[in-house]
Amino acid sequence: MGLPKILVVEDEALMLKALEFRLKKDGYDVYTAKDGLEGMEQINSQRFDLIITDIMMPYIGGLELLSNVRNNRETRDTPVIILSVMGIEQIVLQGFELGADDFVTKPFNLSELSIRVRKYLKQVV
């Protein structure tokens, strides 16, 4: 069995790189997408064990991506962690209603994210 596959969808290049570095170091097979559209293309082309997505992105936002994931029979059970900025509780609530498994609010602790990722991947494995 290969490494657990994680898709990170984030439009900030620097953030994307940091998450990629960190998750690779934690021993995952990390795929990246720089916007929601690219993220959807990857989701439609292969199966992921976990999706981490930002909220505010060009073309397709994080919530729309989440909604698409949940409405797709193939991907509806994939855990989704959403990255959001502090102080937008409405969006957090909307995300949970759409079926997000977890929220990580920026600024966040990378070790905390690692623990959350581990938790969801354990459930999957």
């Binding site: 900030e12 953030m15 940091a18 920026k106 600024p107 966040f108 602790n109 990378l110 070790s111 905390e112």
Partner: peptide
């Protein structure tokens, strides 16, 4: 610019 961007995004030891 990169230091500020990371500092805004991360907390804890990294920050």
């Amino acid at each position: 610019q990169q230091l500020l961007e990371y500092r805004e995004s991360f907390s804890g030891n990294t920050s």
